[in-house]
Design a protein around this nucleic acid. Sequence first.
RNA 1: AACCCCAUGGUGUAACGGUAGCACAACUGGUUUUGGUCCAGUUAGUCUAGGUUCGAAUCCUGGUGGGGUUGCCA
Length: 568
Amino acid sequence: KRKFFYIMPETMGNTNNAPLDFIREIVAEDLRNNKHGGKIVTRFPPEPNGYLHIGHAKAICLDFGVAEENGGVCHLRMDDTNPTKENMEYVESIINDVKWLGFDPGDRIFFASDYFERMYECAVTLIKKNLAYVCDLTSDEWDEYRGNLNLPGRESPGRARSVEENLDLFTRMRNGEFEDGAMVLRARIDMSSPNIHMRDPVIYRIRRIHHFRHGDKWCVYPMYDYAHPLEDAFEGVTHSFCTLEFEIHRPLYDWVLQSLDWPNPPVQTEFSRLNLTNTVMSKRKLLQLVKEHRVSGWDDPRMPTVSGMRRRGIPAAAIRKLCKTVGITKFEALTDLALLEHCVREELNASAPRFLAVLDPLKVTITNYPAGGVEPLDAVNNPEDPSAGSRKLDFGPELYIERSDFMLEPVKGYFRLAPDREVRLRYGYFIKCEEAVTDAAGNVVELKCTYDPETRGGSAPDGRKVKGTIHWVSARAAVKAEARLYDRLFTVEQPGAGDADFLTELNPDSTRVIEALIEPALAELAPGSTVQFERNGYYCVDPDTKPGKPVFNRTVTLKDSWTGKQGK
RNA sequence: AACCCCAUGGUGUAACGGUAGCACAACUGGUUUUGGUCCAGUUAGUCUAGGUUCGAAUCCUGGUGGGGUUGCCA
């Protein structure tokens, strides 16, 4: 009985029909009413003062997605109206991340600061309409005049100024005749409004800051609440989506455009931001992690930034899938990190070629195999994708297996290797453990095994079965590699909740670096390549990789229904 | 405290006055040369009290709980 459907575009990863979220319903309704002449223009407006994170990705999927689905366009606009913390490095990273996520702004990359002259003219218009005035209250007076949530504000003496005087003062503000903070331009609205943003809000302030694009051309900068509706209007934006905390700003957004008699103005609609468990999303906190070297940088693979997730090996399609799955609502949800991991696994299961790598090696000697013998074995590259083909694995008498794939005294339900037990080596032979060699401390240091030559390739002609198949590398061919095992950045679901200092909730074991033994083909891969280490997890080749010294990042583990079952 | 917004299984989301469905997670079982994948199944939900209606997750009122707003940040 759903009224509307839309076809998911290619970038959203499928073509199934899906019910419309409330924002897409609004857009569909506007289209039906021909509200904007059948055109849809959206925008993604980040301030270039930090790197994009997965929360931004949700907004990007919405802004670009809605445009794409409706034959419209989406502008990428840098909201650079406060140059204090903005710079070109951030601009470049933002453009790069948006494109990597799979969206193409084309030539629609704009800068709010390019509209400063027009914004200034609009401010002059407001003054002429007696809808804006210059106010020179001191900061102490400000606190007193503003009122608070329960108390209405009081009108500034500046409210009484004549249009001529305001025009003169505003011109002189622009010309740099006054000190920073000496006066501001305010909108004349309602000092007794219960919405504090409507109590004659500041729309221009004097700030002598070097702008990264316009240098020292300006010493007055427009405030967000004034600038944003104008940016949208100037660009012909029809639908302006933003997060919930701007809900209370909407009356001001509308006031600005209405006061300028803007025809067919853009409409702001708010949705809830993305919250993920076991991480933080605020720019302030992310910046702090970087500045205090709690992480290696904005692109640390543990960071929820787009660049961090990219380096972690998370495919853009998985991020899009997550955003589609959590949907667009006004409910402030907390999404389980497990959902992201599921999206990542789903994507990578289909695409990542399989390889064998041993992360915690235990030596195995095949006592009945010809000494020095070498033998190529066929291995399938991806059982999910026949077109991925196969490769050769080098088998020999000396191998390494995973330490966790052997138990001296196997527990119930364990069906890997143990004394006198037989398992299959993946793509290889059945082997049987004849002897576990221990050191003085009783640690197992080597296994002496025999193999059954009849089981080459992994099946026994006599039809006998083994329950376990384990991965391995041959001692002769194996290459050493660094593996960086990443885990959640924080130990708690909501870092910083309550009175907690989020830094005390950092996971001390969020990175574990080990030396692994990998099959040689893995050492040939280019940085950025994504693979599966069979029976272990998905990994990608880190840019730190140097010739002869491969580095792998663990993107996510494989699901494991054994480890959790032990002890039951 | 004033104003605004929100409330569906453990988590996220659907329902547009007419059978509460899907996904994740958890748990069973089947298949399997990855304890992966895949397949089948189980557990589990409309915050609360009234009202309107033949019929309410849906509409109305009160309550409860959560969030936002009191930068010359965005």
